[in-house]
């Protein structure tokens, strides 16, 4: 199961928010979807899942809803927990598409362990801190154990250790044979952990390739308006934005 988008276009009124994007994410890939605010990252992912009307083709949206729910897990940006349910019950919601029974309880345990939440399983989810809630919601998506995992800014607001841990989990999910697509704003973490970066700007796909090839001045300047330092070190790729373009003192 892979994610395949061909010529995907989403219009708000007449104005295209996502404009003719073609993109494939294969099993084993951890693709970072990057771009400035308003570039259309969220819209692209929601349309790909069939959660909003679009033109073009999406391999996921073509599936009936029940099959799609087994094929793809979606972690929205809004961290919504409406009721004071226990952490284990919340994570178990990821098993809904699979029906009762089966491997459900084991999948919930695996997801809790991977996010370091085993000790939290009986706590009320609404009483956790924001960062802990974010990890619980990631665990919910993991428990779905779908071949495709899509996440919208999953690590925003987490502490540095939790951010690295979450990125390592996503990378491990990909290495384990899933196709992972995550919208990210932290380009440094994206550079280190993603196997591939896709750049969206004004709804168009403007760059697609390994982090080294994408995080170059020709992309960073026009798309993000920044200059950055990129270096290959003994610890891997290091990326640090240093100044806004045109800000020559920086």
């Amino acid at each position: 199961m892979r994610l395949d988008l061909r010529d995907l276009t989403v219009r708000r009124g007449l104005c295209p928010v996502v404009d003719g994007v073609s993109l494939a994410v294969a099993p084993g890939e951890f693709v970072g979807l990057i771009g400035p605010n308003g570039a259309g990252k969220t819209t692209l992912m929601r349309a790909a899942l069939g959660l909003m009307p679009f033109d073009g083709l999406s391999s996921l949206a073509a599936l009936p809803p029940a099959a799609r729910a087994r094929a793809a897990a979606w972690l929205p940006q809004a961290r919504d927990i409406a009721w004071p349910v226990s952490v284990a019950d919340l994570v178990a919601l990821g098993r809904l598409p699979h029906g009762p029974g089966g491997d459900g309880a084991a999948a919930v345990d695996r997801a809790l362990r991977r996010m370091g939440l085993a000790a939290f399983r009986d706590r009320r989810a609404t009483e956790l801190s924001g960062g802990e809630q974010a990890r619980v919601l990631i665990a919910r998506a993991l428990a779905q154990e779908a071949p495709v995992l899509m996440a919208d800014e999953p690590i925003a607001g987490l502490d540095p250790a939790a951010q690295i841990a979450a990125m390592q989990v996503f990378a491990a999910e990909a290495a384990g044979g899933r196709a992972v697509l995550a919208a990210l704003h932290d380009l440094g973490l994206a550079a280190r952990h993603c196997t591939r970066l896709v750049v969206l700007s004004g709804g168009r796909l403007v760059a697609d390739g390994p982090p080294r090839a994408v995080l170059v001045p020709e992309v960073l300047g026009p798309v993000f308006g920044i200059r950055a330092h990129l270096a290959e070190t003994a610890e891997g790729l290091v990326f640090q934005p240093v100044a806004m373009v045109g800000d020559e003192d920086g």
Binding site: L51, A72, W74, P76, A78, D80, I81, A82, L90
Partner: peptide, 9 residues
Amino acid sequence: TLGEDAAES
């Protein structure tokens, strides 16, 4: 419980 978007997904 997870919001309308997540429920639909």
